[in-house]
Amino acid sequence: MARDPVLEFTERGIYCPAGGFYVDPWHPVDRALITHGHADHARPGHSRYLSTTGAAPILRQRLGDIMLETVSYGARLRIGDALVSFHPAGHVPGSAQIRIEVAGEIWVVSGDYKTVPDGLSEPFEPVRCHSFITESTFGLPVFRWPDPAEVARDLNDWWRDSVAAGRTPVLGAYALGKAQRLLSMLDPGIGPLLTHGAIETATSVLRAQGYSLPPTVAVTPETDPRAHGGALVLAPPSALGSAWMRRFGPVSTGFASGWMMLRGVRRRRAMDRGFVLSDHADWPGLNTAVKESGAEKIFVTHGYTEVFTQWLRSRGLDADIVPTRFTGDEAQVE
C-alpha cells in the first residue's frame, strides 16, 4: 500500500498528515509549527502554536495572547505518528529548520536560513534528511555575500564620515533580525545608537532574552536629536524618506540588504549607501545547504525557484518547485 508522503503542499501551507500539523501555514489551522517570527511565516489565527524557546517571546509580542508551546533546539517531540525536532536555521535569533520523521523517512523544512554565522543568531546546523525544502530568495550565482567583517568596517566608516560631514546617518533595516544584527556590528564607541519604535520593540524583546546587544535610545516625539550628537539612527525601510526622518536634519541614508549587491537596485533606491548584508543564504550557501542535507529530493520554495530548480536538476538532483505564499522578509526587492 502506498504511504502518504511525510509532507503535503496544500492551499493552507505545508501539511504533515501523520502528525496532523502544518508548518508556517498562511490560513488559520488547528496546529501550527512556526520556524520564526517574521510576519509571512508566523500568522495570526491558529488554535495552537509550537516554536523554539528562542522564537517564543517575539511570537507573543507580535501575535498577542496565543496558545504557544515551546521546545529547545534538538529536542525530539512526538506529534501523532511524526517525530519532530527544531534545529538552528541561522536566519534570525530563535529561527529554526524543522525536522520531521515518519516511519524512518526524514524531511526538513528549512524555512528561511543562512549558512554564515552572524554573531547573534544560533548558527545554521545542517540536518541530514531524505527530502529538503529550501527557499531560493537569492538563488542565482550573482549573489555571493562579502565578508561580514568588511561590511562592518564599511558601516562604521560611513557612520564616522557622515558625522564628520555634518550629517546624521540613517540606516534602513528590517525590524526583526537585520536591525539587531546591525546593532551588533556597529561600534558604539563612535556615538549613540538611536532606534525607531518598531526596531526598539524587537530589540528590547531580544535583549531581555539575553542576546548581547549594545544600548539603544528609542526615538519618541520628545526626543531631541541634538542631545544625541554623532548618533546613528536605525529605522525600518518604510520610515526612510518619511516625515519621521525630518527631525534629524541633514542625513546620509543607508540600506542593508542582500539586494544591495545589485547596482541597479542600489541606484533605484536612491540611498546614499547600500550595504550588502542578508539574513538569507547566498548562492554558495544554498548549494552548501542542499549538499550537506544529503537529501535525494529537493523542494524549492520562494525566490528564483525556476532557475534554482533547473540548476539542481542539471546537477543530477531530483528537484521540484513548490508554490508558496511566503514573500520572505527580503523577497520584495524594494
Binding site: 542565482l140 550573482v142 545589485l262 547596482r263 541597479g264 532557475v307 540548476w311 542539471s314
Partner: peptide, 13 residues
C-alpha cells in the same frame, strides 16, 4: 552552464 549566466543577466540588468 551558459543558460544560468543568461538567466542571471536580466535580474542584474
Amino acid at each position: 552552464p551558459l543558460w544560468l549566466v543568461e538567466e542571471s543577466y536580466p535580474v542584474v540588468g
